[in-house]
């Protein structure tokens, strides 16, 4: 009950923002505009929730409240996959691929790559998370380099398509992709909540967690798979968003004062969604601007990252 009470204001806040987003200065043709807005709203909520939840889980398993999945190269892998697909198969083939298939391929590649990399590192390094993170950072740099190289090989029209695919945009969301992403988000969040008590124990550190009987490495691997899935569905939907998770997770710790993941994960998901819905509402409805939300979220997130870094993150 106490948990529900802490989440209720966040859920109500998101509901209010969603209502504003849907209903503000609604004009004819109402049904058409509402459908458009509802689609965009759903995308914003799915992406915000996925990134928020993924970041809280990721910060727990890396024992570091400054990290986001993007920092260890998830977004770089996504951009690399997109560019590679256009380079090898051509822009026409890539853009005509059935949405569900493309989504499945992208999400599957991201999850598999994350599990292969982290699974290998965890077996070798026995939980040396610093090594995992550094490898991820280096991999990210490597992949960005490869992507930049591949982009030089593209002709201008194909390059334009890659650019469109690889920059976060909430304005052109495919409905079929959205439907799959919504279902996957539901499943991933349910799995994350089932894992929540064990994530609480992971936060004690590997040695202590193992000494109280937790199958630490197995839990971390399961959590990584969830993070990969959540990031995959979000990036496949709108493109890479690096710093949104940092804002959502930091606010979730502050707003709830909780350490239990059964509260933190839904809180970060609700806050992530609220930031995107609220931000898009302000930019689109109040200021009449298009497609600047991602830039502002990244700017504010980057600023928060620097502030946290300079203040040193509290344990």
């Amino acid at each position: 009950m106490a948990d529900a009470r802490r989440l209720l204001p966040l859920a109500l806040g998101l509901a209010a923002l969603s209502a504003l987003f849907l209903g503000w200065s609604l004009r004819a043709p109402v049904e058409f505009i509402l459908t458009l807005r509802a689609t965009k709203l759903a995308a914003l909520v799915v992406v915000g929730a996925a990134i928020g939840a993924a970041t809280v889980i990721f910060q727990t398993i890396t024992a570091n409240r400054l990290l986001t999945p993007g920092i260890v190269g998830f977004d770089a892998l996504f951009v690399f996959l997109q560019t590679g697909a256009v380079l090898f198969f051509g822009s026409a083939e890539t853009s005509t691929l059935p949405t569900t298939l493309r989504f499945g391929l992208e999400a599957g590649c991201l999850v598999l790559a994350a599990l292969a990399l982290f699974g290998l590192l965890l077996r070798r390094g026995a939980g040396d998370i610093l090594r995992v993170v550094l490898t991820g950072v280096i991999l990210g740099i490597f992949l960005r380099g490869l992507t930049a190289f591949a982009q030089r090989l593209l002709d201008p029209s194909e390059f334009a398509i890659v650019q469109q695919l690889t920059f976060a945009s909430f304005n052109a969301v495919d409905r079929a992709t959205l439907a799959i992403a919504t279902v996957l988000l539901g499943l991933a969040l349910a799995a994350a909540l089932a894992l929540a008590p064990r994530l609480d124990a992971v936060a004690l550190g590997r040695q202590t967690a193992r000494s109280i009987g937790l199958h630490h490495d197995r839990v971390v691997l399961a959590a990584l798979a969830l993070v990969a899935l959540l990031v995959a569905l979000s990036t496949a939907l709108v493109g890479p968003v690096t710093f949104l998770g940092l804002i959502a997770a930091s606010l979730a710790y502050r707003a709830t004062g909780a350490w239990r993941h059964v509260v933190l994960i839904p809180a970060a998901a609700l806050i992530g969604a609220a930031i995107l819905v609220g931000g898009q509402f302000i930019f689109e409805r109040l200021l009449g601007l298009q497609s600047t939300l991602a830039v502002v979220v990244e700017f504010l997130g980057g600023l928060l990252f620097l502030i946290l870094l300079l203040r040193r993150s509290r344990p």
Binding site: Q59, T60, S211, G213, P315
Partner: peptide, 18 residues
């Protein structure tokens, strides 16, 4: 089963949760 037999207190204990 192990954790019901022995409790180990490691040398350094870093807890990220508050």
């Amino acid at each position: 089963e192990r954790a019901r037999r022995v409790a180990l207190l490691a040398q350094s204990n870093q807890v990220t949760a508050r």
